[in-house]
Design a protein around this nucleic acid. Sequence first.
RNA 1: GGAGAGGUGGCAGAGCGGUUGAAUGCACUGGUCUUGAAAACCAGCAGGGGUUAACGCCCCUCGUGGGUUCAAAUCCCACCCUCUCCGCCA
Length: 423
Amino acid sequence: MIDPQLLRKDTEAVARRLADRKVDFDVAAYNELEAKRKDSQVLAQSLQAERNQSAKSIGQAKAKGEDIAPLLANVADLGKRLSAAEVELSAVQQALDDLLLGLPNLPHESVPLGNDESENVETRTWGEPTQFDFDVLDHVDLAEKRGWLDHDGATRLSGSRFAVLRGPLARLHRALAQFMLDLHTTEHGYEEVNVPLLVQPSAMLGTGQLPKFADDAFATTDEPPRYLIPTAEVPLTNLVADTILEAGQLPVRMTAHTACFRREAGSYGKDTRGLIRQHQFEKVELVHVVQPDASYDALESLIGHAEEVLKRLQLPYRIVTLCTGDMGFAASKTYDMEVWLPGQSAYREISSCSNTEDFQARRMKARWRNPETGKPEYVHTLNGSGLAIGRCMIAVLENYQTADGHVRIPDVLQPYMGGAEII
RNA sequence: GGAGAGGUGGCAGAGCGGUUGAAUGCACUGGUCUUGAAAACCAGCAGGGGUUAACGCCCCUCGUGGGUUCAAAUCCCACCCUCUCCGCCA
């Protein structure tokens, strides 16, 4: 959530920064609502003060044994006026909250201006696109040729955009998850966390999936619903919701390997072939909770941790800085990591690392006690994939394929594959 | 699923419907004392919000949401959560 104080004080400037994100913020409508809020709140609070005062004097009079009947007559209609004022205030407040909860984060000043993904900025590349002296297969042809991908089985079970992996491919998938978790916990200083895959609406609100993107998530039918997590960012980050951390507890670094679930509403026809875009996929997620002044350094280390996975796997990639028009709802700044896929002759997203500054922290009331002020202040939260396991598996298949349809196993994965060098 | 107990400040733990946002203890912070530390003593110490140039004033919050009342931590209703026992179960 954007700081309500900032919005109130500097409405025009906020509107300009939102415009960079293609959000049309109606300043006049906001000002009107805000003025109404102020009036309602002042009125409601003064009536509350009046009620408190009179209740107090009635109590005192009664204690002295005085006649309280005239005092009661005095406040006869106060209750009605008060509850009317309170009803109005909460309606205005609700409207204001709805407005605020629907606004995306403000972009950081270092974020390039742009309308869509075509204006993202390539920040660096690592490695060279893999060269082959034979015609490469994409991951679908390769995996089906070897009987590793049970497309019919997946469709029978769950419909489109689901996958069944078999044999060595299932193991490769597991090996990747294990390798990533081990790297982040033993070398990058993350705590491994195992989290629920179903969360309450409050958690989805905290990280920004709700209220605006309810249609993107699967929900249960109980009331209130629970949501299948679209990313472990949701449970991991919300672990610090409603808490005040001591300075010594920061930074918090957590990682979790989970399944993720997405409706993929609105992506009809996109990536229908293969495993790139599924309703259910697995991911190793990285989350940082840090002091505000440390969050941009944390973003650099976060993307570095994600990069290290591909470096060890010897997979070529590039880092892209998302422009203002392409960033996610909660992000102030985002780096995407894209891995080279020979089957598509293209770089494809495999990780996205974002600093949300205090946007999520404010929604979920995640704070720390600043020793300099002694006061609770919002933390900054960051999240990134480290990495998407399915897409990483695709990258291994396509980049490590051999002319006869086998796949060499990257050195760092061999211990997780029972020593196999090729499958 | 059944039976019972309970949810109050960082923690522990009081709280006849009425100057209780909350006694007391611990923890924490500052001070006195001390060569230093400890002890002792003194003082401070919840969060959020409104208003104000500021000092300050005011409002909300005792699991959550309703209700009764001039007045609710305290009474009533519903829900949530925790603990114990029974049942079921990976």
